[in-house]
């Protein structure tokens, strides 16, 4: 949580128990270099206590992109897959604070549009947690959720 990791095939990469947090995979299909971000909040600038840039969608994606390029990924070939951003509790009121899952997925879309990286698949929102595992060899993102069958996107 609040971190990203770079991984190269034949390794795989996973993050456990995404709730309102969002998981973003960026991968270069030509060489199997990928990164996975597990971000908690949408925008770096909105929070005072922000020593960890990977905690936020915008700065986390920027830093992960830079790390991928250093590793040898080609920015023009990068694709994104997104999962998470659920609303774990049913709130009747709909204040800013409570739709943090939705804010996170919106921030992913904004940031990736700005970075010109296409989102090729997503499984977002709803009311349940997800554990995700990405295989850069196949480009498949496996999603497990309690009470739901496994999903591959």
């Amino acid at each position: 949580m609040a971190e990203f990791e770079i991984c190269v095939r034949p390794q795989m990469i996973t993050t456990i128990g995404l709730g309102s947090c969002v998981g973003v995979v960026l991968y270069d299909p030509s060489n199997g270099i990928c990164g996975m971000l597990h971000a908690m909040l949408p925008h770096y600038s909105a929070i005072r206590n922000n020593s960890n840039r990977a905690k936020f969608v915008d700065t986390g994606l920027e830093d992960m992109l830079a790390a991928l390029i250093r590793q040898g990924a080609d920015k023009k070939r990068l694709k994104a897959k997104v999962a998470g951003g659920a609303q774990m509790f049913d709130f009747s009121s709909d204040s800013d604070v409570l739709s943090v899952g939705l804010q996170n997925t919106l921030a992913v879309k904004e940031t990736l549009e700005r970075l010109r990286i296409p989102i090729v698949a997503e499984d977002i929102g709803e009311h349940y947690g997800r554990t995700i595992c990405f295989d850069p060899a196949t480009g498949e993102l496996n999603i497990k959720a309690v009470g739901h069958s496994n999903l591959v996107i």
Partner: peptide, 15 residues
């Protein structure tokens, strides 16, 4: 909510 601990508990911590 009934779900994975990580998914549930991260919410109040994040907020």
């Amino acid at each position: 909510s009934i779900d994975m601990a990580g998914a549930i508990l991260s919410f109040p911590a994040i907020i």
